[in-house]
Amino acid sequence: MRPFTYDRADAVPAALRAAGSGASSYLAGGTTLLDLMKLDVMRPERVVDITPLASRLGGIEAGPQGLRLGALAHMSAVADDAMVRRDYPVIAESLALAASGQLRNMATLGGNVLQRTRCNYFRDVSYAACNKRRPGSGCSALDGVTRLHAVLGTSEHCIASYPGDFAQALLALDGTVELEGPQGPRRIPFAELHRLPGDTPHLETTLAPGELITGFGVPPLPWARRSVYLKVRDRESYAFAVASAAVALDLDGGRVREARIALGGVATRPWRAREAEAVLAGQVLDEAAAQRAAEAAFRDARTHGDNDFKPELGRRTLVRALFQAQRLGA
């Protein structure tokens, strides 16, 4: 871990000012930042501890305008919130199925959506080649162990998968991100927060330098009660998704009025499966329709050996999630 100066900010403007003065990182739960600093992957020279902002940025509010989640709300608080569990089960489940009890107590929503990939070639600085860590250095994963790597949204420069869960729920529900930055506040669709790796995998988000996530919005969506987060993993708990699916269904009898689908564990960024949604619109949700949707979702999948099974698993995961959502009472 490189040396850094430590500041605590008790107000957003102070945080922005502190962060503006060098290669800085905001510190909230610290579960990604400290981990990667110990591995020498992240090397901020200034760490701005924003936990004192939790009193203002830690809220969970629901109303006619939908749901608003403060960026400093802890994962555990949102996962346990009775209203979120009732009205937006996909959000509560995505958080409850992530990480561990301690990590959920520490990590905040803002940090959660920004967690970095688990690609071991990224996390281990002894690999010289990692375009995400050292732009232009190459990608060690391409001829390495790729079991947990992405099959969607990859490029020849990076196949690292996005490891989070909550992001898929937000994405499926058309969430938004609220930001504060040196240029003032702004709000963007959550779908615009993460970038595809392309030829700049080191640029993971569209955040401007110094910009701070202050909260998330979810528009009102009564049928979000019929939503699930299905996470397929190698052990019963405390593991990253091998494949996951966030699904919300608006049903008219047996027919799908609208489906929302986002996929995790299989893509380089939180992945909205709009092709699959389109396949389902207006259809009766039966095995054949679900299979067609799953086919559509993974039509462009590219595999790299160890993860050859992932499109098949991803399809099955989506089909299972669709039927699981179908069985729910809305």
């Binding site: 990182s25 905001y26 992240m42 090397r43 988000t205 330098p209 110094g210």
Partner: peptide, 11 residues
């Protein structure tokens, strides 16, 4: 410069 998610850190 930059921050958190976008820091090209180790570079």
């Amino acid at each position: 410069a930059p921050l958190l998610a976008v820091a090209p850190a180790a570079a």
